[in-house]
Design a protein around this nucleic acid. Structure first.
Lengths: 136, 136
DNA sequence: CTTGACCCTGTACCTTACTACAGGGTGTAG
DNA sequence: CTACACCCTGTAGTAAGGTACAGGGTCAAG
């Protein structure tokens, strides 16, 4: 089966090799197998894992939170009550993020629609007012 | 009308006063009016603005991006084509974020459901596989 | 009319998440 | 058999986003 050295992994996941080593040190990636030379070797599942990390990060999760998220599925001997509680917590957080994004979306749509017909000042910020139900 | 000093504003928005001053320096907040003493004075719209900044940040937007977002509604004399193009761009970004969050949500739900009936190893990470359609 | 909570500016420091060497070994194409 | 791209460890530096003083003025309650 085809394997990846750190450089190839990094290219596939669109990050720098240093970032991979940094993630390893930070326990976001498990210590990989090594060739006799000491070179790290990875398989394609690591590519997915790194991409996941990057996407979660773009959504405002910190590396610590992401480690937690990934840890949930990997802790051998984590009991179900704990995993479920954590999952529930994360689900609520995600639900809230989606809700806020929806409101921003609405605000931007209003802003865009208002524009071609113009004349009204844009100064009343429709993004903010959609989030907080302000004087529209 | 009731006004806020920096400390009250900070408490209302759940940040530190230093953060408010930092946002002012970073042009995320306009220079406020001052009392004769030099004290900054704000009104409630600034509370909303600061909350907006914090929420946008929690969604992975940088302060520079947020400044851009807020700037869109305030640039006197920004032409509509430009505002619309920017809004469209942001809308796509937001749509993508929502999509990714939905997939994470699905993954976490599967993880949680799988747990009480247990026995299967959790080791196949359902969060990641939901994002990348891996071997489920 | 003072005391405690608040405000000011300015500078220095901190954490997170990288990024960039330095100094040295590896692997493969020509 | 060498040249060039790649890998290793370790340490230091960077950018973003704050946070923490120091040194000094303000304001309202008692």
């Amino acid at each position: 089966m085809h394997y990846f050295t750190i450089g190839k992994l990094a290219r596939q996941a669109a990050v720098a090799p240093e970032t991979i080593r940094y993630y390893e040190k930070s326990r976001l990636l498990p210590p990989p197998d090594r060739l006799e030379s000491g070179y790290r070797v990875y398989d394609s599942s690591t590519v997915k894992r790194v991409r996941f990390i990057k996407e979660a990060q773009a959504l405002g999760f910190t590396l610590a939170e992401i480690a937690d998220l990934l840890g949930m599925t990997e802790d051998e001997g984590a009991d179900c009550a704990t995993v479920n509680a954590k999952a529930q917590e994360k689900l609520e957080e995600i639900q809230k993020k989606i809700g806020t994004l929806r409101k921003m979306q609405k605000g931007l749509e209003v802003l865009a629609q208002r524009c071609p017909a113009d004349e009204q000042p844009l100064s009343e910020c429709s993004i903010i007012s959609h989030l907080y139900g302000a004087e529209e």
